[in-house]
Simulated assay, not measured.
Amino acid sequence: MTGATEKVGVVGCGLMGAGITETCARAGLEVTVVETNAGAVAAGRQRLETSLAKAESRGKIASAADVLDRITIVEGVDALADRTLVIEAVMEDEAVKTALFRRLDEVVTDTEAILASNTSSIPIIKLAAATERPQNVLGVHFFNPVPVLSLVELIPSYLTAGETTERARSFVQETLGKYAIDCKDRAGFVVNALLIPFLLSAIRMVEQGVATAKDIDEGLVRGCAHPQGPLALSDLIGLDTVQAIADSLYDEFKEPQYACPPMLARMVDAGLLGRKSGRGFFDYT
């Protein structure tokens, strides 16, 4: 079975789930997306409609309506029973993801189906161990915004079959046209293990009054040719997600560079999550 034949399911239609769904549908695939309730279904559909309308207006796709026709958004994971590849994109919480993989193991009927996680930091083996088919479980980690960024990290666990990894690679590279890199099953994988300490350092600078968020970001953009500063990037990722990845890295390695700054924790507690909430280090309202 090759990537081109996969019947794709996505769990979650938030920022990442919608991006993964859009990318698959733009590649010509029929995608079934599941959410937890009617409100989340409506919000997911609106997110996709808005993104695809922008893509059409910029000439990235010929017809937003045609892409939307390939997407079905429903409530409940039972709708994924016939899928051959399911990509999980729910909140970055180990207990939530583990419970979901246990449920997917019960629901998805194809014994060769790939069960993939878009987790940023949770060990894949913990998700695989929740199933009776750990050989079919791996991490397939996309980057936000998914339709724009070309990188995908492939993360097999110790129990992932080689065939599973190669099928996932074929799907990512041949079907979606993205670039896959191979990562060991360790917290943060490659990109976040390097990126998160950098973002936390910028947050500590704000916390300590070294410079303003604006000046820190301008310094990195104008002095290091970064496309955007670390604090704007943190807002784009979501400060709750940055905290969750940092916590996962710190839990595994116990290194100070991964420790969540108090300022970040307080902002998350206050609901100041970045772009998705309208305010983080910068105001998006």
Rank of each mutant, 00 (worst) to 15 (best):
F282D: 02
A4V: 11
A62I: 14
A99V: 08
K254F: 02
S157D: 09
G219V: 09
Y258H: 04
P197G: 10
E30A: 14
A113E: 14
R83P: 10
Y250I: 00
S121M: 14
R58Q: 13
D78W: 13
D78V: 13
L127N: 10
D182Y: 11
E92S: 11
T241C: 07
H141C: 05
D217M: 04
A65D: 11
I216H: 02
R70H: 14
I203P: 01
H141F: 05
V172E: 03
V107M: 13
R204C: 05
Y158T: 15
E88H: 14
S150I: 06
R70G: 09
G9K: 01
M205D: 12
I61K: 04
A168M: 12
I61Q: 05
V148E: 15
C13H: 01
E30N: 11
G9E: 07
A202C: 05
T285W: 08
A65M: 06
D93E: 09
M1P: 15
I155Q: 03
Q228N: 07
A168E: 10
E35N: 11
V86C: 12
K184T: 13
A128E: 13
F281N: 03
V108C: 12
R266N: 07
T50E: 15
L115M: 06
Y158W: 05
M205L: 15
A213S: 14
E166V: 03
T36K: 14
L233F: 09
R167W: 05
Y258Q: 12
S170V: 03
A246F: 00
S117W: 04
G59Y: 04
Y158E: 12
K184S: 13
V137G: 06
K54R: 15
D215R: 07
E174N: 14
G44V: 09
K214S: 09
K7H: 07
V8M: 08
L236K: 01
V172G: 06
A213Q: 08
Q243F: 00
I125M: 08
P147S: 09
V31D: 13
I124V: 15
S248M: 14
D235R: 00
A38R: 15
V96C: 10
C260L: 00
T285S: 12
L195P: 10
G76Y: 11
H226C: 08
G28L: 08
D110P: 10
L200D: 10
A18V: 07
N192A: 13
A38D: 15
